[in-house]
Every structure is written in C-alpha cells, then in structure tokens.
Nucleic acid binder design. Sequence first.
DNA 1: GAATAATACGCCATTTTATGTCATGTTTCT
DNA 2: AGAAACATGACATAAAATGGCGTATTATTC
Lengths: 244, 244
Amino acid sequence: MRATDRSRFERLDAIAARLKDDAALTAKDLAEQLGVSLRTISRDLALLRDRGVPVEADRGRGGGLRLPRHWGVGRLSLTYREAVELLVCLAIAEQLPSPWLIANLAAVRRKLVASFAPALKDKIASLRSRILIGGSASAAVIESFSPLGAEISEALLAGFLEHRRLRLCYRDVAGKLTEREIEPQWLLLNAPVWYVMGWDHKRQAVRSFRCDRILEAHLTESPFTLRPAREFDAAIADIRAIRP
Amino acid sequence: MRATDRSRFERLDAIAARLKDDAALTAKDLAEQLGVSLRTISRDLALLRDRGVPVEADRGRGGGLRLPRHWGVGRLSLTYREAVELLVCLAIAEQLPSPWLIANLAAVRRKLVASFAPALKDKIASLRSRILIGGSASAAVIESFSPLGAEISEALLAGFLEHRRLRLCYRDVAGKLTEREIEPQWLLLNAPVWYVMGWDHKRQAVRSFRCDRILEAHLTESPFTLRPAREFDAAIADIRAIRP
DNA sequence: GAATAATACGCCATTTTATGTCATGTTTCT
DNA sequence: AGAAACATGACATAAAATGGCGTATTATTC
C-alpha cells in the first residue's frame, strides 16, 4: 500500500530531495509520504550516509532530520561544450592571484577533468597552462574584429583539446591568403580577440594566428605532442606588443 | 563467484565508467570483468537506458557497446563552497568580452544557481552583478597585504550571499580601530586584495573596506535589501584610484 | 547463403536483498 | 517522569536480482 510505487534508489533520491528543502522533517513524515515503514526509512538513511550524504539527525522531542546548512548543492550536469567553456573559465580565474573566494578552484577543475573520458583527461588537465589571458585589444584590433564561424570554431577547439593538427586557410595582416598545417598549442585572449599559437609544420617554426582571420580550419587525424613553453615566449611577447 | 562483490548500483556505476572509456567493449567483456552473467549485464544496460544513459549498441559481428562521444562529460557534484567559488569564477569570466570559448557561460550559471537551495536562489542569481574585477593592486598595497582568517572569511561570504548584516572590527588606513555594522553589498577584487563595499548602518552612508584590514566579522540575523548600483559608483572609483 | 558474433528479450527456478513488525535502547525536550 | 524523536537488532516474509536456457534479430565474414 504505497503512495507511489518506486524502486529503492528512486526513493533514496526522493529522500535526499526532501532533505534539501531544509524544512522540518522527521523520519515518520518521510515514512508516511513515501509509503514505507519507519524501519525502512531508517535503513535508507544509513545507506545515504554510506554513500556520503551527511544526514544529520536530532534526537528527542522536536528533533528530526537535516542536512548541514548549505550542503544541498546537487549535481551539475553540463553539455560537452559547457564543460569545455567552464574549463577555460577556470583557467582564466586561476590566473588571478586571489587568496580568497576563488582560492580552491583546483578541486572543481579536478572534478570537471575527471568527468571526461580517460583518453582526453591528460590532454585536458594541461589545458590551463596553455591558455593565456592578456589585456584588452587595441581599438584598431577591435575595429577589424569579426566573430568566428561555427565550423572553424569547432575545429579549432577540437584540435586544441585533442592535440590534433589543423589545416588552415589564413589571411595575414597584409591580406595575403596562405594554406598552413599547424599544431594548435596555445591560446591567448586579448579580449575580444583570440589568438592561436601553433607550430607550423611546413615552416618548422612557431607562428601565431588571429582566430578571426582564419578562413577555414580542418581537423586532421595527425596527433601532436606539446612543445616546451619557452618556445612560445617570443610569440606571446609579439602579440602582447600589438597593443601599446 | 564474483570478481569484486558489489551491490547492483555500484555495478551500474562501474558499467557507466567503462562505457565512457570509449574503447571497444562488448557485453560479454563486461560480464567477465564484473563477474556476473551476460543476462544480468543485459538487464543492467536496460536499467541504465531507463535512467537516461544513452547506451548505444551495435549488433552483429564486431559490434559492442558505446556511449555517444562526449556524453556524460560535465557531471559533477560540488560542495557548497566549491559551488560558490565557481559562481564567483563565472562572474569574473563573464566580465571579459569574448565571443568565443567563454561565450555561453550563462547556461552554466543558470544550472549552477538552480542547484542551490531554493531559499538562496534569488539572492545568488544577482551575485554576478555585485562582484567587480579591477586590475591588480599597486605594489604598495600588495606589500601590506595579508591573507584572511577562516572565520572572517566565512562570515563575509555568508553575509554577502545571504544578505545579512555584519558587525565588523576594522583597522583603517590610519591604523585606528572602529566597530561598524555594515550591509555587505558589493565585492571588488584588485588582485590579490578584496574589498567589501557596504552600507554603513550607523553612518547611513556607503563605506568600503579592505578585507584584510578586517580584524573581526560577525554575522548578524538582520537581513538587508540591495541598494541601487549608482550609490556605489563613487566608492568604486575611489578604490580604483588607489592604483595609479 | 551459411556461419559467426554480437545484442535483445521472454520464461522460470533459485538466490539474494529489501521490507515490515516487534522489541529495545538512547537522547532531548517539557 | 513522560513523550517524541532517532538507532539498531532479530526474524519471518515479500520482492527483486540473478543465472540458465531458449529464441529472435542484426551485421559481418567467408
């Protein structure tokens, strides 16, 4: 004779949900609401505690069940794209020296990284050190700025994350078109303009590209390995010098 | 005769984890690895599908089980503190104009806000517009900077998030100690130094406080309402002027 | 087109787990 | 002291999970 017929684990979810609404709640209430015996609720609570939910119980008259104030933050379920944006966002925030309020983002980053498929994990774990945030772009740069197309955007992102070479069609400062095959190793933001720094395969040298000057980008199957950071120092300095 | 003795739902987790490793995987492999029969694996997969995991199966020779590429990325469960830090981190990133890679953080923020207890949601939703990120602090400021104690840090955060008044003991620039009762309305970061801008209750005026000069902070029960942003313009300009 | 390797699913006996009931203990408030 | 709350043990029973078997279906390979 149950109020709603659920499997056990749905009931556990239901209990957790009711606990989160930090209203006064007793085990007896739960038993009635969920149509099971008090003993079962008791066992369910034990199970929840085993699984890491810190259910606190106050004995005695006027007592009841609680979660520690503010433990109620449930699961976050992000799409792939959102997860990647969040990673970038973390990379940015972790570049700010702040001993308070954003001091422990590393834990969040670890959890986020852990949610990726193992094959991507190690590649993604190093992402933070391959993104640089500069100041904002100069007026001249902003003037000539145009947003990226969806396809290019996809390809760039995939190449950067998965360490795969890209074939680019690029229009340089002078307006000349070139075909290139590059390893997208670093990203740099001079808001609102993103730059890719890559190893140019034909020229065997570091080159940097303003993302919105890329006309086409195609993902290849060739993987690459990360190059030492110092090889990019000069290129980074160059881009930063664009704005006075 | 089981490889490892687990309850059913632990086994479901194990299956999901193995599926994420997008290596070739058949139901038979799973059955052997987990020490249960093929029939059980089959039932487990049905259960996973019921619970919303889009397990794809290729029949026939060379077939096997898969998850859609990138499914399940971004499932994480955060502690309250982590969620708050993440919110602040988002507030920071959303202040950067970037049309790519961090353009869609709003969705993440919404999901994050939704995961808080209902009572806090509306207060937290406006948090983004009450945090400002300035440049980095001047050498002189950094010189005199000291990290915050855990208790003060807790109280400040709680007051700011929950809109509750704080009683402060503050040492001003001249070194003079004062007792104050303030409404913590804004936060401002000149890395690594945080400032609180608040409405000082005794003086009936906006005042700003360098967080690391706060000697004591006690949370009171009195709630406050947000004041219009323009009242803080002058104070913000002041703090920014500290660094030339 | 036949053999093979994979998933899918129904049925049923058996094993395991979950549940209810009853009993007892403990803590806390009135 | 008594009532209201959680905690926990024991045991019979109800429910669910499991294994084994058979069959169907789909895709690949030879």
